Structures are given as structure tokens and as C-alpha cells.
Amino acid sequence: MEKRTPVFFFAPFVSSTMRIEPAWIDYNGHMNMAYYHVLFDRAVEEGFSLVGLGHDYLEKRKASFFAAEIHTTYKRELTVQDRVRVTLQLVEFDEKRIHYYMEIRHAGEGWVAATMEGLSLHVDMETRKVSPFPDDIMANLAVMKTTHARLPQPAALGRVIGIPHRTEVQEALSASGTRH
């Protein structure tokens, strides 16, 4: 078992500032959808390294975590001049899974460009099978979860893809003050 060190987490975790790379801009003049996932992935790596699930974990303990399911919503375009930060909120975890919610936010203005809800699985890299987290990682996840539990549950959590019924669209437009 690894030596346990005290951990402290901000709620939510906020990534370092990231740039939009010119190669990520598509023919529509904004960042292609695939690269939102690059930003989310970089922030997942940064955030969960705090609980001990970084590159060192793979090297020393021969285990990692893999994405099992994601749900992304695109709220606002990003362009090459934008700088962003990604927030990460640990929603839940158990002995083999991590459920989390993320937002890509404009670094200067704070608006949300995209959201992502994810479920990742802990994997033994020697067997390539889902396996339980070690006790020290479970303890660190518990501390992160306790800190993040103080945050409100994201409204988009558990969102289902579908075309809204006309009455839902009218209610949403009325609530936003938009005339229809």
C-alpha cells in the first residue's frame, strides 16, 4: 500500500489555463467538436492526478482509469484567440468507477462553452480488466467527494438526448424572455 499523504481539494477543481490551437479550428471558423474532448481529457488528467491517478500511478502501480461513457453538450463557440479553464466536480464514486461533471469556461469572461458528464473505470493494466481502486486512492476520492458534495448538483447531470416536445421549447423560450 502506498504511503498516504493528506490531500486538499478546491470545489470544484479548476484546471490550468489552456489555449485553443490553430489546427483545432475547422472550416466553420470555430474549434471542431473533437478538440473539446481534448480539453476535457487534459483537465481529467490534471484533476484526478490530485487523488493519485496520474501518469506515476500507471508507471508505479500498473493501473489507470478509462472512459466508459461521456455525454457532451456544446453551448458556445470557441475560437483560436480564446483561453479556457475546465472545472471538474466529482459526483460519485465506488470501488471501480468515477462519475464526474465538467465545464469548459472562458478563462477571462467565465461563460460556459461546453459541459461533459463522464463515467470512468479503474483498470488493472496488466490484465486489462476493471479492478477495485487501492485503499489510498479510495480515501483520496472520499476526501474529494466530501469537498465537492458542498457544490450544487449540476442541472445538466443525467441529461438525456432527445428532441424537446413543443411545449418544453415554448416553456424554455418563455422562461428566457424570448418571444416566439
Rank of each mutant, 00 (worst) to 15 (best):
K145P: 02
M18Q: 15
H165N: 12
E45M: 10
F133H: 04
V130E: 04
V143P: 02
L78P: 01
S15R: 02
S15Y: 03
V130A: 10
R76A: 13
V7T: 13
S174F: 08
E77Q: 15
S64V: 06
L119N: 05
F40S: 00
A63S: 15
Y100D: 03
T147F: 04
T127K: 14
H122C: 05
A67P: 02
D56E: 14
A23M: 14
A113C: 13
G158Y: 09
R128D: 07
R4E: 13
F13H: 06
M1A: 13
S176E: 13
T146V: 07
M18N: 05
F93T: 01
I104A: 01
R76Q: 15
L173F: 14
T5L: 13
A172S: 15
Y74T: 07
M1L: 11
V7P: 00
N28F: 13
R42V: 08
E45K: 09
R97L: 10
W111P: 03
H30Y: 11
L151Y: 06
L58G: 03
K60G: 07
L53A: 04
G110K: 07
F40V: 01
Q153C: 08
A139Q: 12
T5E: 14
F65I: 03
A139H: 12
A113T: 04
E126W: 04
S120T: 13
H99A: 09
E2D: 14
R83C: 11
F65K: 00
E21Y: 15
M33C: 10
L78F: 07
H55E: 13
S120E: 05
R4V: 12
L90C: 06
Q89M: 05
P152F: 06
E126R: 13
M18P: 02
Q170G: 03
E103M: 06
R85W: 01
F48Y: 14
N140C: 11
K129W: 08
H71K: 10
V123D: 04
L88K: 00
P132F: 08
L141V: 05
G162I: 11
D82V: 08
R159C: 11
K60E: 12
H30P: 08
V86N: 00
K3L: 14
A113K: 00
S49C: 09
V123Q: 05
E69C: 07
T87C: 05
R105M: 10
R42T: 09
A114E: 01
R83G: 06
F66T: 06
T73Q: 11
G54C: 07
I163W: 07
D56K: 11
M138Y: 02
H180N: 14
Q81W: 11
V169H: 07
A23L: 12
Y74L: 10
L53H: 00
A23N: 12
H30V: 13
H99E: 10
T146Q: 15
R166L: 15
H71Q: 10
P154G: 09
E45W: 06
F10C: 12
T5S: 13
L50C: 09
M33Q: 13
E103P: 02
